[in-house]
């Protein structure tokens, strides 16, 4: 693999992404729906008031965090809660809502749920389109398969990171300048942390899209695969856990079970989660490259 080629391919793939329909839709979809979902949460603060809003978000967060960290069957969670089995989750939610700016925490946890969906709808066409039209064969006259694969991944990862930074910057600036609820220092510190977390979350999904895109011959099929597998996987795992508890571990087939630890109060767990996301990225890239090298073009 030639790193100069990787850099050149990554750099040229960003404007190429924008010229392609998927890049335009990805950017518009991510920014508009990201802001729309944030707006729904901010509206809840105005409708419910700060105290009721915090209570409402706390209930939702407890359920979400308990489900993705496999504390128990979803049907048994209320009982677990009654006997103090979810105290660690309560402490986590308390940290997000009392020690950090609650509104930003709520918005960014929602974005953590949405980022994989945005990625699945925007990053699916890294190689599939070129494979369909046979353009890859011409590109491989001047570079290697691994350079092309990593270059496209890197370009898409940087494009996705830029979208996330744009989205989180707008949100932090809006909450800081319009709502007058939190100190600027707290907002910026938590905003930077959450931006880093969202970028970490996006990487394995971009890598997963690279893998699918490298093995499927049509962008539409790649979209169907990524658009179905990524959002459906946690529901399937949690549903399967309700039938037989060990099946809940299926959630670790993708980063869903790891990614929310990036918002944990314990820095060691945050680092562990970030490393987990990078490990998933490496695994998906390895699988993608393996199949891309083996495939008949």
């Amino acid at each position: 693999m030639n790193w100069t080629h990787v850099r050149l391919i990554a750099t040229s793939s960003i404007p190429q992404t924008l010229r392609s329909g998927t890049g335009v839709v990805y950017a518009v979809f991510t920014l508009i729906f990201g802001l729309h979902s944030a707006n729904l949460i901010v509206r809840q603060v105005e409708t419910l008031g700060a105290t009721r809003f915090t209570g409402w978000v706390e209930t939702a967060l407890n359920f979400l965090l308990a489900s993705v960290t496999l504390q128990g069957k979803t049907t048994e969670l209320p009982e677990l809660e009654k006997f103090g089995g979810l105290d660690n989750i309560h402490a986590w939610a308390e940290y997000l809502l009392r020690e950090q700016p609650a509104l930003l925490s709520a918005v960014f946890i929602l974005q953590a749920l949405l980022v994989p969906l945005f990625v699945s709808s925007g990053a699916f066409n890294q190689l599939a389109g070129d494979l369909q039209h046979g353009a890859v064969r011409y590109q491989l006259l001047s570079t290697s398969r691994s350079s092309l694969f990593f270059g496209r991944f890197l370009g898409m990862a940087v494009f996705t990171a830029a979208l996330i930074v744009a989205l989180t910057s707008v949100l932090v600036l809006f909450v800081g300048s319009q709502l007058d609820l939190y100190e600027w220092g707290d907002l910026i510190a938590w905003g930077v942390h959450c931006t880093f977390a969202l970028i970490c979350i996006s990487l394995p999904y971009v890598a997963f899209c690279s893998w699918i895109s490298a093995v499927v011959n049509s962008p539409f099929s790649a979209l169907i695969f990524t658009g179905l597998i990524i959002p459906a996987q946690p529901f399937l795992a949690i549903g399967a856990m309700n039938a037989w508890e060990p099946l809940g571990k299926l959630i670790y087939l993708m980063p869903w079970g790891v990614q929310f630890w990036l918002f944990h109060p314990d820095p060691a767990k945050v680092v562990f989660a970030a490393l987990g996301c990078l490990a998933y990225t490496a695994l998906f890239l390895f699988l993608g490259l393996y199949f891309f090298r083996k495939r008949d073009l």
Binding site: A27, L31, I32, L35, H36, N39, V42, F174, Q178
Partner: peptide
């Protein structure tokens, strides 16, 4: 709804 995130959202597409 006054100046809200919704307003910023409606400015995104024209600017883009």
């Amino acid at each position: 709804e006054g100046f809200s995130i919704g307003v910023i959202r409606s400015l995104i597409y024209p600017c883009f």
